[in-house]
Amino acid sequence: MPLLELSDIHFAYPGLDPVLESASMQMQPGERLSIVGPNGAGKSTLLKIIMGLLVPDTGTVHAFGKPRAEEADFHEVRRRIGFVFQDADDQLFCPTVAEDVAFGPLNLGKSKDEALAIVDQVLSRLSLMHLRDRITHKLSGGEKRLVTLATVLAMEPEVLILDEPTNALDPDNYSRLIEILNGLDQAILLVSHAPDFRAEIAPEGYRLEHRKLVRI
Protein backbone atom coordinates (compact mmCIF):
# COMPACT_ATOMS: atom_id res chain seq x y z
CA MET A 1 0.00 0.00 0.00
CA PRO A 2 1.54 3.32 -1.00
CA LEU A 3 1.93 6.04 1.64
CA LEU A 4 0.85 8.69 -0.79
CA GLU A 5 -0.98 8.44 -4.04
CA LEU A 6 -2.12 11.25 -6.27
CA SER A 7 -4.21 10.25 -9.25
CA ASP A 8 -5.19 12.33 -12.19
CA ILE A 9 -4.89 15.69 -10.46
CA HIS A 10 -6.05 18.79 -12.33
CA PHE A 11 -5.44 22.16 -10.82
CA ALA A 12 -5.70 25.77 -11.99
CA TYR A 13 -5.53 28.95 -9.97
CA PRO A 14 -8.71 30.98 -10.50
CA GLY A 15 -8.55 32.83 -13.82
CA LEU A 16 -5.18 31.37 -14.86
CA ASP A 17 -4.02 28.59 -17.11
CA PRO A 18 -3.94 25.11 -15.57
CA VAL A 19 -0.84 24.28 -13.51
CA LEU A 20 -1.40 20.54 -13.30
CA GLU A 21 -3.21 18.30 -15.77
CA SER A 22 -3.74 14.65 -14.92
CA ALA A 23 -0.68 14.53 -12.73
CA SER A 24 -0.21 11.27 -10.84
CA MET A 25 2.39 9.96 -8.46
CA GLN A 26 2.97 7.30 -5.83
CA MET A 27 5.18 7.07 -2.83
CA GLN A 28 5.95 3.82 -0.98
CA PRO A 29 6.81 3.61 2.73
CA GLY A 30 10.44 4.54 3.38
CA GLU A 31 10.91 5.78 -0.16
CA ARG A 32 12.85 8.96 -0.88
CA LEU A 33 11.70 10.87 -3.92
CA SER A 34 12.59 14.20 -5.38
CA ILE A 35 10.50 16.35 -7.68
CA VAL A 36 12.30 18.44 -10.26
CA GLY A 37 11.04 20.94 -12.73
CA PRO A 38 11.57 24.51 -13.85
CA ASN A 39 10.51 27.51 -11.77
CA GLY A 40 6.78 28.02 -11.79
CA ALA A 41 6.09 24.49 -13.02
CA GLY A 42 3.78 23.86 -10.07
CA LYS A 43 5.99 22.00 -7.62
CA SER A 44 4.91 24.06 -4.64
CA THR A 45 1.30 23.80 -5.79
CA LEU A 46 1.64 20.03 -5.87
CA LEU A 47 2.99 19.97 -2.31
CA LYS A 48 0.15 22.18 -1.11
CA ILE A 49 -2.35 19.80 -2.67
CA ILE A 50 -0.77 16.91 -0.81
CA MET A 51 -1.12 18.84 2.46
CA GLY A 52 -4.69 19.86 1.73
CA LEU A 53 -3.87 23.55 1.61
CA LEU A 54 -5.18 23.68 -1.95
CA VAL A 55 -8.06 21.63 -3.30
CA PRO A 56 -7.58 20.07 -6.76
CA ASP A 57 -10.25 20.73 -9.39
CA THR A 58 -10.47 17.04 -10.18
CA GLY A 59 -8.51 13.94 -9.17
CA THR A 60 -7.98 12.25 -5.84
CA VAL A 61 -5.43 12.31 -3.06
CA HIS A 62 -4.90 9.09 -1.09
CA ALA A 63 -2.73 9.26 1.99
CA PHE A 64 -2.00 6.48 4.47
CA GLY A 65 -4.52 4.24 2.78
CA LYS A 66 -7.52 6.56 2.83
CA PRO A 67 -8.95 9.01 0.32
CA ARG A 68 -8.58 12.60 1.53
CA ALA A 69 -10.96 15.23 0.29
CA GLU A 70 -12.32 17.39 3.11
CA GLU A 71 -10.42 19.77 5.35
CA ALA A 72 -11.11 17.41 8.28
CA ASP A 73 -9.47 14.47 6.40
CA PHE A 74 -6.27 16.45 6.16
CA HIS A 75 -5.90 17.05 9.89
CA GLU A 76 -4.56 13.54 10.23
CA VAL A 77 -2.44 13.92 7.09
CA ARG A 78 -0.81 17.08 8.45
CA ARG A 79 -0.01 15.29 11.67
CA ARG A 80 1.69 12.43 9.85
CA ILE A 81 3.44 14.46 7.14
CA GLY A 82 5.99 17.05 8.20
CA PHE A 83 6.24 19.98 5.80
CA VAL A 84 9.33 22.18 5.81
CA PHE A 85 8.55 25.46 4.07
CA GLN A 86 10.80 27.18 1.58
CA ASP A 87 11.12 30.35 3.63
CA ALA A 88 12.04 29.62 7.24
CA ASP A 89 10.58 32.93 8.36
CA ASP A 90 7.15 31.68 7.35
CA GLN A 91 7.45 28.70 9.58
CA LEU A 92 9.10 30.10 12.69
CA PHE A 93 6.44 32.40 14.05
CA CYS A 94 6.88 31.94 17.78
CA PRO A 95 9.19 34.31 19.59
CA THR A 96 11.58 31.67 20.91
CA VAL A 97 12.93 28.44 19.44
CA ALA A 98 11.62 26.29 22.30
CA GLU A 99 8.09 27.62 21.87
CA ASP A 100 8.21 27.10 18.16
CA VAL A 101 9.32 23.49 18.49
CA ALA A 102 6.66 22.94 21.17
CA PHE A 103 3.89 24.42 19.01
CA GLY A 104 3.26 21.23 17.03
CA PRO A 105 3.28 18.81 19.99
CA LEU A 106 0.97 21.16 21.94
CA ASN A 107 -1.44 21.14 19.00
CA LEU A 108 -1.37 17.35 19.12
CA GLY A 109 -2.73 17.61 22.66
CA LYS A 110 0.48 17.02 24.59
CA SER A 111 0.82 18.66 28.01
CA LYS A 112 3.31 21.45 28.57
CA ASP A 113 5.77 19.15 30.33
CA GLU A 114 5.56 16.51 27.61
CA ALA A 115 6.02 19.19 24.97
CA LEU A 116 9.09 20.57 26.72
CA ALA A 117 10.52 17.06 26.99
CA ILE A 118 10.01 16.64 23.23
CA VAL A 119 11.67 20.01 22.62
CA ASP A 120 14.77 18.97 24.54
CA GLN A 121 14.86 15.55 22.95
CA VAL A 122 14.53 16.80 19.36
CA LEU A 123 16.95 19.68 19.82
CA SER A 124 19.60 17.47 21.38
CA ARG A 125 19.12 14.88 18.65
CA LEU A 126 19.90 17.57 16.07
CA SER A 127 22.62 19.09 18.32
CA LEU A 128 20.74 22.37 18.47
CA MET A 129 20.33 22.64 22.24
CA HIS A 130 22.37 25.85 22.28
CA LEU A 131 19.61 27.55 20.28
CA ARG A 132 16.82 26.47 22.64
CA ASP A 133 16.08 29.85 24.24
CA ARG A 134 17.15 32.05 21.36
CA ILE A 135 14.76 34.51 19.76
CA THR A 136 13.77 33.05 16.40
CA HIS A 137 14.15 36.16 14.26
CA LYS A 138 17.70 36.66 15.49
CA LEU A 139 18.90 33.27 14.21
CA SER A 140 21.07 33.11 11.13
CA GLY A 141 19.63 31.73 7.89
CA GLY A 142 21.25 28.33 8.39
CA GLU A 143 20.16 28.10 12.01
CA LYS A 144 16.61 28.98 11.02
CA ARG A 145 16.59 26.18 8.46
CA LEU A 146 17.77 23.55 10.98
CA VAL A 147 15.28 24.80 13.56
CA THR A 148 12.38 24.52 11.08
CA LEU A 149 13.41 20.92 10.57
CA ALA A 150 13.34 20.44 14.35
CA THR A 151 9.86 21.98 14.62
CA VAL A 152 8.60 19.48 12.10
CA LEU A 153 10.44 16.45 13.51
CA ALA A 154 8.97 17.26 16.94
CA MET A 155 5.65 16.01 15.60
CA GLU A 156 7.21 12.64 14.72
CA PRO A 157 5.92 12.58 11.15
CA GLU A 158 6.08 9.48 8.97
CA VAL A 159 6.86 11.49 5.85
CA LEU A 160 8.95 14.62 5.45
CA ILE A 161 8.28 17.10 2.67
CA LEU A 162 11.11 19.52 2.03
CA ASP A 163 10.59 22.52 -0.24
CA GLU A 164 13.95 23.91 -1.36
CA PRO A 165 15.68 23.15 1.95
CA THR A 166 19.11 24.28 0.74
CA ASN A 167 18.06 27.90 0.20
CA ALA A 168 20.29 30.25 2.19
CA LEU A 169 22.57 27.54 3.55
CA ASP A 170 26.32 27.95 3.95
CA PRO A 171 28.53 24.89 3.25
CA ASP A 172 28.73 23.97 6.95
CA ASN A 173 25.00 23.98 7.53
CA TYR A 174 24.54 22.32 4.14
CA SER A 175 26.58 19.30 5.18
CA ARG A 176 24.91 19.31 8.62
CA LEU A 177 21.53 19.13 6.88
CA ILE A 178 22.62 16.21 4.69
CA GLU A 179 23.98 14.43 7.73
CA ILE A 180 20.74 14.95 9.67
CA LEU A 181 18.49 13.90 6.80
CA ASN A 182 20.51 10.77 6.10
CA GLY A 183 20.18 9.83 9.74
CA LEU A 184 16.37 9.90 9.62
CA ASP A 185 14.19 6.91 8.83
CA GLN A 186 11.22 8.88 7.44
CA ALA A 187 10.14 8.77 3.83
CA ILE A 188 11.16 12.00 2.15
CA LEU A 189 9.63 14.01 -0.66
CA LEU A 190 12.15 16.60 -1.78
CA VAL A 191 11.84 19.60 -4.04
CA SER A 192 15.26 20.97 -4.84
CA HIS A 193 17.10 22.61 -7.70
CA ALA A 194 20.48 21.49 -6.37
CA PRO A 195 21.56 18.32 -8.22
CA ASP A 196 24.24 17.44 -5.63
CA PHE A 197 21.73 17.67 -2.83
CA ARG A 198 19.23 15.50 -4.70
CA ALA A 199 21.91 12.94 -5.41
CA GLU A 200 22.69 12.72 -1.69
CA ILE A 201 19.13 12.59 -0.36
CA ALA A 202 16.75 11.38 -3.01
CA PRO A 203 18.27 10.47 -6.38
CA GLU A 204 15.02 9.01 -7.73
CA GLY A 205 11.78 10.78 -8.30
CA TYR A 206 9.54 12.62 -10.71
CA ARG A 207 10.00 15.37 -13.22
CA LEU A 208 7.19 17.90 -13.49
CA GLU A 209 6.93 18.95 -17.10
CA HIS A 210 4.05 19.99 -19.32
CA ARG A 211 1.81 19.91 -16.26
CA LYS A 212 2.37 16.16 -15.76
CA LEU A 213 4.56 14.10 -13.48
CA VAL A 214 7.01 11.78 -15.24
CA ARG A 215 9.01 9.16 -13.33
CA ILE A 216 12.78 9.53 -13.69
Binding site: H75, F85, F93, F103, N107, K112, A115
Partner: peptide
Protein backbone atom coordinates in the same frame (compact mmCIF):
# COMPACT_ATOMS: atom_id res chain seq x y z
CA UNK B 1 -1.13 30.39 8.40
CA UNK B 2 -0.47 27.51 6.00
CA UNK B 3 2.67 26.57 7.93
CA UNK B 4 0.76 26.72 11.19
CA UNK B 5 -2.02 24.52 9.77
CA UNK B 6 0.58 21.99 8.65
CA UNK B 7 1.63 21.68 12.24
CA UNK B 8 -1.89 21.04 13.45
CA UNK B 9 -2.92 24.59 14.40
CA UNK B 10 -6.56 24.73 15.37
CA UNK B 11 -7.05 28.25 16.64
CA UNK B 12 -5.24 28.31 19.97
CA UNK B 13 -1.61 28.92 20.75
CA UNK B 14 -0.39 27.65 24.08
CA UNK B 15 2.25 29.72 25.80
CA UNK B 16 4.92 27.80 27.62
Amino acid sequence: LAAMKCRGFSGRIVLL
